[in-house]
Design a protein around this nucleic acid. Structure first.
Length: 517
RNA sequence: CGGGGUGUGGCUCAGCUUGGUAGAGCGCUCGGUUCGGGACCGAGAGGUCGGCGGUUCAAAUCCGCCCACCCCGACCA
């Protein structure tokens, strides 16, 4: 952060509600924001992130374009009232974040600050030993336009991304798009299947078929002997802004609620009663053809011929194409492994990941409402253009451990190891060993290394196992050759050991750590 | 908020089905032996069985309510 010109600040955890009201997030973020009242009854919040504080500060400090750009960062506790803290240290209600903020004169300048952060983050994660993907992401409640997430592949992760190994396209499944892929769709099924109409894209004949008691995708595919990809999945949702509407995705696809939310705003699934009231049909037999509600369909359904609910209890219709119903086509489905890359002919792979960082181009999302403005060269007042950039420290630690361990425990990369080395005496009850171990520990500390010392009088097996478990990059073992002034230097990562005279130990440790960078 | 699970020495758990004097392993204490990859022998200490109420001659065990924690989902920068 310092290397790209950031200044470190310390910002308050306790925020007056006022600044959160100014930014609009007091009402927008909901229960995730910890709120309380002070003794005077004034609303307060525990900051979950610091855009408001930064913008408030910028509004008071920045007057002129000559003061820009500014890059500010801090490393601090953040608070979020998570609905369900889980996964060890991956999702907690109190956590430490490094976050920084850029203040610029315009979008082009902000892009420069953004690119600086991307470059710095690439270096930071590489140095921490984290294998990561930088993926396109959703901005969530942050607002703004462009956003990327830093994702560390790990089965322990809570997020999922898709990656094209041909062109490098990578995106969070929350917003990933897939290329058109006719092959998997209903249209190209071999003729003769019940879903295929001879006319292809033209509106062929609709045929009503009795499908008693076949409501779910599984039941209908089993009953008709067709693939799920030949069905239209028909969901009825209630939107705050648009009322009750129909949403269509292909039978083998999943609705991406985030994508739909971007189209229709907040929504929930309709209850069976609501479906019956608005369409007069049971929930398993709803279809787009002849339905009286506004309809949104996933792009995939533009092509192909499908089976869909007949809006009549106990019946489905076959031969349904896009020409048979009125709908607004949008990208609404969740992309997964095996889908076609939107940018090339490659296939997408999906991967579980730990989100370790995220960068946002905020634009004037905060500076406009909070009046953070400057005078440009012409003397015109303009809003500051902002970016924000976060790294979850505990998550980095978790990702490092998930990616660097073996059957014996953690294998810390030297850059992030809590201690560079662990000194242990094999037999603490042996005066010679203890004295030498004390001396070695003292010398290493004096030489500026962070050292952990296991001087417990326990059996050697326990001490070796514990040292491996803790995973310091180097172990200095003071044992049977103590009398000769020789100790053993062991590399945790490889298990490689060298006997080293105490006189050369400090130099050997320094050389070993230098070599690992 | 919905679904599932678990609460028994410090820790991990058995016992509950079929009610009848509360157990094991690890850890801990003391003595002795051992000592380069989680040693061994011997002797000990340690539990209102999550809480409240009920059934019963008798409840860790059966019933009801409550509490806490864990997992899955919803949710989530």
């Amino acid at each position: 952060m310092d290397a790209i010109g950031c200044q470190e600040l310390l910002m308050p955890v306790i925020n007056p509600a006022e600044i959160w009201r100014e930014s609009g997030r007091w009402d927008k973020v909901g229960e995730e924001l910890f709120r309380f009242k002070d003794r005077k009854g004034a609303d307060m919040a525990l900051a979950m992130t610091h855009e408001e504080v930064v913008t408030w500060l910028a509004a008071r400090e920045v007057r002129s374009y000559k003061q820009l750009p500014q890059l500010w960062y801090h490393i601090q506790t953040k608070e979020r009232d998570e609905a369900r803290p889980k996964s060890g240290i991956l999702r907690t209600r109190e956590f430490i974040m490094k976050d920084s903020y850029s203040l610029d004169v315009d979008v082009e300048a902000m892009q420069v600050s953004y690119d600086k952060h991307v470059a710095a983050y690439d270096r930071i994660f590489a140095r921490c030993g984290v294998r990561f993907l930088r993926v396109e992401s959703d901005n969530g409640m942050m607002g703004g336009a462009v956003s990327h997430e830093y994702m560390a592949p790990s089965p322990a992760g809570e997020d999922e991304v898709v990656v094209c190994d041909a062109c490098g396209y990578a995106a969070n499944v929350e917003l990933a798009v897939a290329g058109a892929d006719q092959a998997a769709g209903g249209a190209d099924r071999a003729a003769g299947g019940p879903a295929t109409s001879p006319g292809g894209e033209e509106a062929g004949a609709l045929v009503e078929v009795a499908t008693p008691e076949a409501r779910t995708i599984d039941e209908v595919t089993a009953f008709l002997g067709i693939a799920a990809s030949e069905l239209i999945k028909c969901l009825v949702v209630v939107s705050q802004e648009r009322g009750t509407i129909i949403v269509l995705v292909r039978g083998d696809h999943e609705l991406n609620e985030l994508k739909l939310r971007r189209v229709i705003g907040e929504f929930r699934l309709a209850t069976a009663d609501e479906v019956a009231d608005s369409l007069g049909v049971g929930i398993g037999f709803v279809g787009p053809v002849g339905a009286s509600l506004d309809t949104f369909a996933d792009e995939t359904l533009r092509a192909g011929t499908y089976v869909a609910g007949a809006n009549k209890d106990g019946y489905h219709v076959t031969g349904v194409t896009a020409a048979h119903f009125q709908a607004e086509f949008r990208d609404l489905r969740t992309v997964g492994g095996g889908d076609r890359c939107p940018h090339c002919d490659g296939r997408l792979q999906s991967e579980r990941v730990i989100e370790v960082g995220q960068v946002f181009q905020l634009g004037t999302q905060y500076s406009e409402p909070m009046n953070a403005r400057y005078l440009d060269e012409e003397g015109a007042e303009r809003p500051i253009v902002m970016g924000s950039y976060g790294i979850g420290l505990a998550r980095v630690a978790a990702a490092v451990v998930e990616q660097h361990h073996d059957e014996n425990g953690i294998v810390w990369p030297p850059s992030v190891a809590p201690f560079a080395a662990q000194v242990l005496s094999v037999r603490a009850s042996d005066a010679g060993q203890s004295e030498l171990a004390d001396r070695v520990y003292g010398e290493l500390v004096a030489a500026g290394f962070e050292v952990l010392y296991d001087d417990r009088d326990l059996s050697p097996g326990i001490k070796f196992k514990d040292a491996d478990l803790l995973g310091c990059p180097l172990q200095v073992i003071v044992g049977k050759r103590a009398a000769e002034g020789v100790v053993e230097l062991k590399w945790r990562a490889t298990g490689e050991r060298d006997d080293v005279p105490v006189a050369g130990l400090t130099a050997a440790v320094r050389a070993a750590l230098d070599a690992s960078f």
